[in-house]
């Protein structure tokens, strides 16, 4: 670990929509190191998918990158022409989509859809591509890959389709794999199998992974570092341990408290209110209206990042030296305590 694969600096993305301009991403910074799995966590609409689409240059036509840089391999991806992306997509950076049910072309055989990537990027012949595709299908855990090779997506279950999408993403040995909520559409058992598969493949192929999810429960098992995103901004980032055991931002607290917990059967905490309308992002801390610990300044001025430790930063005024000391919510304290015990027990 150490070498930086992707560095996103102050990325801002706007959408021109019918009713006005939506500020979907408002100054995001993060970097992906070689060999690590970086999770980006946040509620629906916080701008996670838009960020990944910006990296791959596949934003819809009404989107505009208004500022920032995405540095990859000495190049700024935000300045790249469509043509220059043809050699990056699939070959160096791959994306696994949010919705496996609609990501595959419904009237093309899945084998052909895998081979297409191989033929384009690796210039393989039909025969070579087929052999490799079948090996890939086996790799991602598809039984009877030879038969499945010439079947259509509708003959696959959701979990199997997601594996095909993963196989396509891995086909050309990319260095970077971006998984955009790869398991949200699947049920829990299949979800954990797919996650295991991703972990396994990551180790095998020496991948650096950006893993997007709104489910902190998934993050614990897969990520090295976590960025918590809210309303188009990252509000806290740190190692998995930082985020789970010493969360500093009230939004992270809320997310952690709303995580389903099978052991205790506590009543689930749900975050009050709704995320702000990104057409009119609020002044100050965007989370303030939903934040029980909000102070006056939260409504006036945006908090900068405060350092919690060398690896851990959070953008909340609560970390300001002059702020009143706020205790973690009781429920959360218990949870963290339990998680720590579990880990030591394991």
């Amino acid at each position: 670990m150490g070498e930086t694969m992707i560095q996103v600096k102050d990325l801002r993305v706007n959408f021109r929509a019918w009713a006005g301009t939506v500020q979907a991403v408002r100054g995001v910074n993060f970097e992906l190191k070689k060999g690590e799995t970086l999770a980006i966590v946040g509620e629906s609409g916080s701008g996670k998918s838009v960020t990944t689409k910006a990296i791959l240059g596949i934003l819809p036509s009404n989107a505009r990158i208004t500022s920032g840089e995405i540095l990859y391999n000495g190049k700024d991806l935000t300045k790249l022409k469509e043509k220059e992306f043809y050699d990056i997509r699939g070959k160096h950076i791959s994306l696994v989509f949010q919705d496996p049910l609609s990501a595959l072309n419904p009237i093309q055989k899945v084998g052909k859809q895998i081979c297409e990537a191989l033929k384009k990027n690796e210039h393989m012949s039909n025969g070579e591509a087929k052999k490799r595709a079948i090996a890939l299908m086996e790799d991602v855990g598809i039984p009877e890959p030879e038969t499945k090779f010439s079947q259509y997506p509708f003959q696959f279950s959701g979990g199997m389709r997601q594996r095909i999408v993963i196989a396509i993403a891995l086909a050309c040995n990319p260095e970077i794999l971006i998984c955009d909520e790869p398991t949200t559409a699947l049920d829990v058992t299949i979800q954990s199998r797919i996650l295991d598969k991703i972990k396994e493949l990551k180790a095998e192929h020496d991948l650096s992974v950006i893993f997007i999810t709104h489910d902190l429960g998934v993050v614990a098992g897969i990520a090295d570092r976590v960025c918590v995103m809210y309303a188009g901004k990252i509000v806290e980032y740190g190692t998995v341990d930082d985020i789970f055991y010493e969360p500093a931002h009230p939004y992270t607290w809320a997310l952690l408290s709303s995580m389903p917990d099978l052991d205790t059967k506590e009543k689930l905490f749900s975050i009050p209110g709704a995320p702000p309308n990104m057409m009119y992002p609020p002044k100050g801390d965007a989370f303030a209206p939903r934040n029980r610990y909000a102070m006056e300044i939260d409504f006036e001025q945006e908090p900068p990042f405060f350092k919690v430790s060398d690896t851990h930063y959070a953008a909340t005024w609560l970390l300001h030296p002059k702020a009143p000391k706020v205790e973690l919510p009781e429920v959360l304290k218990h949870r963290i305590q339990r998680m720590k015990e579990e880990r030591e027990g394991a």
Binding site: I58, K83, I107, K120, A169
Partner: peptide
């Protein structure tokens, strides 16, 4: 053209023309 499978085709590294011809156009002719 706005479908997910079209996006997937592009993330594979297909050019815009290839993705349009092989996926979007072919599917909408049916």
């Amino acid at each position: 053209l706005n479908s997910d499978y079209m996006l997937l085709a592009r993330t594979k590294g297909l050019t815009r023309v290839q993705a349009t011809m092989r996926h979007a156009l072919r599917n909408s002719l049916v």
